[in-house]
Computed example of a mutant assay.
Amino acid sequence: MKKNSNSYLASPYIVWSAIFIVIPLLLIVFFSFTKQESGQYVFSLDNFNRLINPIYIKVFGRSLWLALSSTIICLLIGYPAAYIISTAKVSRRGTLILLFILPMWMNFLLRTYAWAAILGKNGVINTILTTLGFNAVNILYTDVAVLLGMVYNFLPFMVLPIYTVLSKMDKDLVNAAEDLGANKIQVFTKVIFPLSMPGVASGITMVFMPAVSTFVISKLLGGGQFMLLGNLIEQQFMSVGDWHFGSAVSIFMMIMILLSMAFMNKFDNDSNKEGGGLLF
């Protein structure tokens, strides 16, 4: 009876998933492997063959480079921030975490538009530079502007999972390593960092996925001067009206994300060991 009751309670979620996840995904797969000829849908691989065009390869390369760069920068900034928060007093941790979460309460578009005002020709940065006697710099509508927008918007996704793992870490392992004669660098590299790898893997995945598929940030801060993978998909569906090629690009992007998730999951499993054991 209890099993049947649980199945009944789960049925709304199953219906929801079927309507808004499974069916749209099947439609994307259908359109990616078909094309229209004389009003009929016929099986074709032409949509995927178009992906080898040098123009689209350049789009893929730029998207991967920016996504990887933003992920690495978020890790370099986010890990020390998460570590500092995890070592702070318990009464202050909530406030420090709130500082990272607070910008996320604002609309995504507004947060991105704010960077346009900061990086613009007459923005805050150039105003300060000209006031100090320096020449104005052209940052807006460049790769640097897009990269800054990605790091700003996705940094909390790196900090939170790492902080969660670090805050739950057994401090006795750190104390044991110090008692065995390990210095601070050895404690970090042999104990703390290995034990925090699940959080690092989660953070990398949570930053890389939206970074490689974003189109709003590149559209607002890039000024439409170059195209990323997300912009290409949006263009095919909203402007060009070529749902077949847009679906093929979407499938390619999903495969790329799934491969990165599988790699990080394997890396996470391989590193899931007691950090203290690495001292010997």
Rank of each mutant, 00 (worst) to 15 (best):
G149W: 07
W243S: 06
M261C: 07
I204P: 09
G199T: 03
M150L: 15
A117V: 15
K168C: 06
N269E: 09
H244D: 08
N122C: 06
W243Y: 14
S86H: 01
D143G: 08
S247R: 00
G120A: 09
W243L: 14
L221S: 02
N6T: 09
N53H: 10
P54N: 00
I217V: 14
D268Q: 13
V240P: 00
L132F: 15
N107S: 10
F245A: 05
Y13A: 10
M209H: 05
T34Q: 08
N135G: 14
R111F: 02
K58A: 13
I19P: 09
F215A: 01
A201F: 11
V159L: 00
S247Y: 00
F134V: 03
L173T: 03
L220M: 14
F208R: 02
N49I: 03
A67I: 12
S196A: 11
M253S: 04
L229Y: 12
M254I: 14
K273T: 15
K2R: 07
P103S: 01
K266C: 02
S218D: 12
G241Q: 02
G78F: 05
R92D: 11
V124S: 11
I118C: 11
N107W: 10
S247H: 05
I77Y: 01
I139A: 06
F60I: 06
L64W: 09
E234A: 07
S70R: 09
